[in-house]
């Protein structure tokens, strides 16, 4: 006689799985990765591979020998962290720094909290900020993008557009004087500018973002509210004094803005769960980013802003509840 199974309902399950979500994210990152290979060449592949292998290795090591729990490498979360970490560093970064970054991302930011789903901060971002503070020289020497079609030229380093503007403005120059040093807007969009591996091409990142929204991996609320906040904030400054403030589009498509808004801030684990919370979270990230960019010491502030708002996530989860059924009856109640 066959032994029947007894369990509570529901007896069917949709086809969602953690792995599916993670590999969806990986797929969404492919365009940005291809652009980086196009502009930064083989170095970009080196950094990505190294970061992925290191992240997965540390995850395996810690799960096997420290936590002594099940090995969940194939859920893809270490892979995502690895790619995101690579996206956040310059392509000329020495290998040993990447490995340190992977250890920080997986060991410190993820596993020490108990593994997938329990971390408060986005692991890749923790690693990026850790590296930025520990190795400021290596982390801010950005290779100039040279299309792969023009052959393998020697790597020349140069500042990012944000750094050019920041230093220029601090030195008292006006925007029109700086314009000559900056790439054209079309270059920003397709990614021909100095910057971290994955952050350069706004178009590729937006493509990935649209894919993820379509597949319901991320919600539109977080990226939209970040970008709108940044746009409005920088727009106000620009309207006040266009000579000494870059225009809002500049802020939207330079630096890690797109990467942060689409891939980093939307990390499920460290972002709020409800629509209201997500909107406030996005607003906070946009605001903090602009405060850091305009008045802070660093030219770029997206990572710090996201990490700060990550810390506010539990609070936002508590404060913003979903709309409960029955809150608005729709008629005067029968008395």
């Amino acid at each position: 006689m066959t032994m029947f199974t007894v369990s509570g309902s529901p007896h069917v399950h949709g086809n969602e799985s953690t792995g599916k979500i993670m590999y969806g994210v990986v797929f969404a990152m492919v365009p940005a990765a291809l652009v980086s290979v196009y502009y930064f060449g083989l170095d970009s592949i080196r950094v990505m591979l190294l970061s992925i292998v290191a992240c997965m290795f540390f995850e395996w090591l810690i799960q096997k020998y420290l936590i002594k729990g099940p090995i969940t490498l194939n859920d893809g979360s270490a892979l995502v962290t690895g790619i995101l970490l690579a996206f956040n560093v310059p392509t000329n970064l020495p290998g040993w720094i990447i490995i340190i970054g992977a250890l920080v991302a997986i060991g410190m930011a993820k596993m020490s909290f108990g593994g997938l789903g329990k971390n408060i901060f986005n692991p890749a971002l923790v690693a990026r900020v850790f590296l930025l503070i520990s190795f400021p020289v290596q982390m801010t020497s950005w290779p100039k993008p040279v299309p792969i079609t023009e052959g393998f030229a020697d790597v020349i380093t140069g500042p990012t557009p944000l750094a050019i503007v920041k230093e220029g403005l601090d030195a008292g120059k006006s925007m029109s004087e700086l314009q000559a040093d900056l790439p054209a807007y079309t270059d920003y969009l397709i990614g021909q500018m100095g910057g971290s591996l994955g952050e350069v091409s706004a178009i590729a990142l937006i493509l990935g973002g649209l894919f993820m929204v379509w597949k319901k991996i991320i919600t539109w609320e977080i990226p939209t509210s970040i970008l709108v906040t940044v746009f409005v904030f920088s727009g106000i400054l620009w309207l006040i004094d266009p000579a000494y403030n870059p225009d809002p589009f500049f802020h939207l498509i330079t630096g890690g803005m797109m990467l942060g808004a689409i891939f980093m801030a939307t990390d499920m684990v460290s972002s709020p769960m409800t629509r209201g919370g997500q909107l406030v979270y996005g607003f906070g990230i946009g605001l903090l980013t602009m405060l850091i960019r305009v008045w802070g010491a660093y030219p770029e502030g997206v990572s710090f802003a996201i990490l700060l708002m990550n810390a506010a996530t539990p609070l936002l989860n508590m404060g913003f509840k979903p709309r409960r059924f029955g809150a608005k009856p729709g008629i005067e109640l029968n008395k």
Partner: peptide, 15 residues
């Protein structure tokens, strides 16, 4: 029969 589900006697008892 084979039980599958939350590892809780209270739930299994209700089920």
């Amino acid at each position: 029969v084979k039980y599958e589900g939350a590892s809780s006697c209270a739930f299994a008892h209700a089920l």
